[in-house]
Design a protein around this nucleic acid. Structure first.
Length: 323
DNA sequence: AACCCGTGCAACCGCTATGGT
DNA sequence: TACCATAGCGGTTGCACGGGT
């Protein structure tokens, strides 16, 4: 009756991750793929609990994460989605594939909550007025119904979905890190590539911790540089610098076609249906829910009564079209 | 220069969901 | 069916940092 090591308080390191630890973790995941987190501390020698390793990976080291400022576009999406879904950050994050739920949650708590409060107190600055909250519970209800319906459909048509030809039609679970086999088969690129690990290491060596710098500082500054190395690699593996509106916009385009609409995403590799690189690590495709373009239009178009009708109509009455 | 305070964000905590036996 | 291990999620905390006094 012994607790698993990850729950042991003794000998488990806490606090900010050092670049060394990051390298060890990334190297390990490069070899073994994400998942089986319990074995990570044991096999790597990291004095971290498995949970901490998983969180570090999913919130920081995972490829395809966009860091830095949120665009207006993203901000509006978050505001609307929060109004629609509530504090279901993981669900909201699934609509913003380059952002982590933690990131979105932090952004909401530190920026948007205040902003929304302001807006509620006074007038709208960006067109989103408090009055729009009216009826949002109805939308949420519709969404819940749709999700339930979708889940039911999935449950009843497993054989059907399993024969879907297009991998990007996969449902929300696809991004979860348990798909180790798939990962391993695709692990020849990204961070996973020895090249990138080398670059990571190299950049880290180039940016040794300043004597006066705290551990955390070093972690932030030097490792941010290493992220730069990822993103600047010719593989285009790490999209940490992909914080361009184009990259974001294109995200919403690739549902409509697999063609060049998602060019910038292709460059960042992680979300291309073709190579499926880290597909298991990326956020779920919205295609399994509703088309991106429709959703985006509905979310962002302030006078989107018609779109809203379309969405609701679709989600309730035509959900079969999603499968 | 020193202190205070607000902000931003990474990480932790505790709970729930899920899957395996 | 019950139990256990693990993963996932949302809330919260702790700390570094910058601006104001």
């Amino acid at each position: 009756m012994s607790k698993p090591p990850c729950c042991d308080k003794i000998g488990v390191k806490k606090g900010p991750w050092t670049p060394e630890e990051d390298i060890i973790l990334v190297s390990y995941i490069q070899e073994h793929g994400p998942g089986n987190w319990r074995s990570v501390p044991t096999n790597t020698g990291l004095l971290r609990c498995s949970k901490s390793c998983r969180l570090r990976w999913t919130n920081y080291l995972r490829p395809g994460i966009k860091r830095g400022n949120f665009t207006d576009h993203e901000e509006k999406m978050i505001i609307h989605l929060q109004a629609l879904l509530g504090n279901r950050w993981a669900a909201i994050a699934s609509y913003l594939p380059q952002r982590t739920d933690n990131d979105i949650k932090n952004y909401w708590n530190t920026h948007l909550k205040r902003k929304m409060k302001k807006l509620q107190d006074g007038q709208s600055e960006d067109g989103f007025s408090a009055s729009q909250a009216k009826g949002q519970w109805e939308r949420r209800l519709q969404t819940d119904i749709r999700l339930a319906k979708q889940a039911l459909c999935e449950a009843l048509s497993l054989d059907k979905t399993s024969s879907l030809p297009d991998s990007k039609s996969s449902v929300t679970d696809d991004y979860e890190p348990h798909n180790t086999l798939q990962f391993q088969s695709q692990a020849s690129s990204y961070v996973s590539s020895a090249d990138n690990i080398a670059k990571l290491l190299e950049n880290w060596m180039k940016n040794p911790q300043n004597p006066g710098q705290t551990n955390s500082d070093a972690s932030q500054s030097s490792f941010n540089n290493t992220l730069g190395a990822y993103s600047s690699s010719s593989d285009g593996i790490y999209s940490a610098t992909a914080n361009t509106p184009e990259g974001f916009d294109s995200l919403f385009s690739f549902n409509s076609s697999n063609s060049d609409a998602s060019q910038s995403m292709d460059e960042n590799s992680n979300f291309t249906p073709e190579n499926g690189l880290f597909q298991d690590e990326s956020k779920p495709s919205m295609e399994a829910h509703v088309p991106f373009s429709l959703l985006e239009k509905w979310l962002l178009d302030e006078s989107a009564a018609q779109n809203q009708d379309d969405l609701i109509h679709m989600s309730i009455e035509d959900s079969t079209g999603l499968f």
